[in-house]
Design a protein around this nucleic acid. Structure first.
Lengths: 215, 215
DNA sequence: AAATATACCATAATTATGTATGGTGTGCAA
DNA sequence: TTGCACACCATACATAATTATGGTATATTT
């Protein structure tokens, strides 16, 4: 049988589970963990000692971690150990639409993404326009997440700017050193740029993620 | 010309920029924002007033937000949720792989997503296995985000369980009332379920998002 | 019947953190 | 040369938050 009701962690009591949920929710919504008194208020406890007890128990059971004496240091164990944080990736424009300026002033929105160790790398997102990559499962309206940088390997999907137009293509360097930019659509032809050709072609970055929304 | 240097908040001074970087780094590593005194220590300031000044300036310039009186409430403006809340969607298993039990114990990870008003709806994610939806741009290894619920409209992509196997298909009800589950792969045949057929078929939910990671 | 876990209350002390006020010096533009 | 932005210092105080200690009551296990 298929169970889909989200099950509680086995070894926590009902109340401990609820407190853990609240801690997660608080971090999600406010960005910072709650204090003991905030938890106390949420559950209408008259004494703070009650919360102290529950937190102590959650720590004993390994469900949360805390640094002694530090304000707002209560955190769910999973989210701390995995070191995963959510980052908002700015959507800077539309790709393959001849967007001339991509800058902070043109931010159209944000995509949430885990920032896994990639701290410092510049990541942004672009809305895909057109059908040049349909056979790679990249559709019109999808959001492409791009890691900025001029380096690409064969097979990477890259965002390239050619004569002030930005497009998404598969990157391939052939034995002669020429760069092939391949659309993943049988109706379209690859573009080839040999080394000493005088075109303003530049790799903006490579695609590291895709996000699509239905309805 | 195409400018892609994600422009720094133009109006920050060098020191303010460094402090903002430290705040981000601290959040990334410890999970919580730093206190004024932690910033003071990091930059070896002899007076806390110095930090107060810089933070006040960062707030004035809109680079960080802070709640008055709250400990550790300094946060980079971009990562703070003003109206859109980021939710972590649990990945409960793999779809089209005959996964028998989907429960909290089987969580494989999380996908971050904006929960736009849909707070309270049960949303989860499944890793796509197989090629039955390639022509809809859903590939093997992609993460499908599913909103739980038994209702679907024609054209929706749904997660259905049939005899304890969960698969992803396009939903279509034909004039006779029979349910068509259509794989988006020309090599595969649609499944048709007429009203009074004795099969354990159940719609688990409909697909609301897709997430793909490259490399 | 005694020990243990759960779930709460009350109060005081301590330390962590934020707030307020008033300074110094330097460089740059009006 | 006056004013203003910038970068810093010193100190006192207020309040936010954690820590400590010692209770009550109930149900469950040994």
């Amino acid at each position: 049988m298929v169970y889909l009701g989200i099950m509680k962690q086995i070894d926590l009591t009902k109340i401990e589970g609820k407190i853990l949920e609240y801690i997660k929710e608080h971090i999600l919504i406010t960005g910072i963990p709650p204090t003991l008194r905030e938890i106390q208020k949420k559950f209408s406890y008259k004494a703070i000692g009650t919360v102290q007890d529950h937190i102590a128990s959650l720590i004993r059971k390994g469900a949360v971690l805390r640094e002694k004496g530090k304000a707002r240091s209560i955190q769910p164990a999973e989210t701390v150990t995995s070191h995963k944080r959510i980052k908002r990736i700015p959507i800077l424009g539309q790709i393959a639409a001849g967007f001339p300026v991509l800058s902070e002033e043109n931010i159209m929105g944000y995509v949430p993404m885990f920032s896994e160790g990639a701290y410092g790398k510049e990541i942004f997102a672009l809305i895909v326009k057109g059908t040049s990559m349909v056979e790679a499962g990249i559709f019109d309206g999808d959001t492409a997440i791009i890691e900025k940088g001029p380096i690409a390997e064969n097979g990477d999907i890259v965002a390239v700017s050619i004569n002030d137009e930005v497009t998404l293509k598969e990157f391939k360097k052939d034995p002669t050193g020429a760069v092939n930019l391949i659309p993943r659509n049988s109706d379209m032809l690859p573009m080839v740029y040999s080394k000493n050709q005088n075109v303003d072609m530049k790799i903006i970055g490579k695609m590291v993620g895709l996000y699509r929304k239905y309805r």
